[in-house]
């Protein structure tokens, strides 16, 4: 028996919106710790890891650890039946091949029951060790999103360079080139508007903008984004989900041949 209840149902809609352009099908892992997922895109270049801790739910029951294979596109379709202020309950029983979503309006005058078929999905779980990063940039998520959108109109890749001067995002394309530098700015009274750079070593890495801009679909989940970089290592782009957990994206860098 698995049952979880999330009063802030729009959060689940936003989580699925943040994954659906990257991953087609995924196994959701259910355990007493919470509801989590690790999935790679079809080209095995990028990975998304989601954690929603059990404490963040109004009700969370999971009698035994198991995985539910779901089509993310179908899940997004089902969640379209929920209004943004609906309370969402997800239920699954042992041995069944369906999952039930229940959407309740806040005034309890409308209840929708939606059943979705589960899938068998073969997925490779990658072991990602905890690592120390050479540079960690924290900045407003909307700022990061608009930088990626702007640069992707010029080029296909973004080079992220962290130095004492700040973090520079640059691109080059057929029509020209561009670079945007954000300096450390921790003096702001609003912490969500701060840009903070922790740097042990200067880092310069190049990534495919196609993937990075897909990651920024998670912007609505968090006011700040954390970008962790080390030379010749995948970047980690993390959006914290308040009180619940996080969504982390990993992307392998472009390598000079």
């Amino acid at each position: 028996m698995f049952e979880l209840r999330l009063v802030q149902g729009s959060l689940l809609k936003r989580v699925i919106d943040a994954i659906k352009d990257l991953v087609n099908d995924a196994n959701f892992d259910c355990s007493s710790t919470g509801f989590s997922l690790q999935a790679m895109d079809s080209s095995h270049v990028a990975l998304v890891a989601l954690l929603l801790r059990s404490e963040g739910f109004e009700h969370f029951r999971c009698d035994r650890t198991f995985s539910m294979g779901m089509s993310i596109a179908n899940m997004a379709k089902m969640l379209k039946c929920a209004s943004n202020d609906d309370i969402i309950t997800i239920k699954a029983d042992d041995g069944t091949d369906t999952v039930t979503f229940m959407f309740e309006s806040p005034s309890q005058d409308k209840i929708s029951d939606i059943e979705m078929k589960l899938m068998d999905i073969d997925s490779d779980h990658l072991g990602i060790p905890d690592a120390e990063y050479e540079a960690i940039v924290r900045m407003p998520s909307t700022e990061f999103g608009s930088i990626c959108t702007s640069l992707s109109t010029i080029g296909d890749t973004v080079t992220i360079a962290v130095s004492k001067q700040g973090v520079t995002f640059s691109t080059k394309g057929d029509i020209g080139s561009g670079n945007i530098t954000c300096r450390q700015n921790s003096s702001t009274e609003k912490p969500e508007e701060a840009t903070i750079i922790e740097m042990k070593e200067p880092v310069v890495l190049t990534f495919a903008l196609k993937y990075i801009t897909t990651f920024t679909k998670a912007t609505s989940l968090s006011s700040q984004v954390t970008i962790s970089l080390s030379s010749d290592m995948p970047v980690v782009v993390e959006y914290k989900i308040a009180e619940m957990g996080h969504i982390r994206y990993y992307l392998a860098p472009k390598i000079e041949e």
């Binding site: 095995h44 990658l126 990993y250 992307l251 472009k254 390598i255 041949e257």
Partner: peptide, 14 residues
């Protein structure tokens, strides 16, 4: 032209 790396080259499967 730089080549796209794959994640499996950095992280091991389990």
């Amino acid at each position: 032209v730089p080549k796209q790396g794959s994640l499996a080259a950095f992280y091991t499967g389990n």
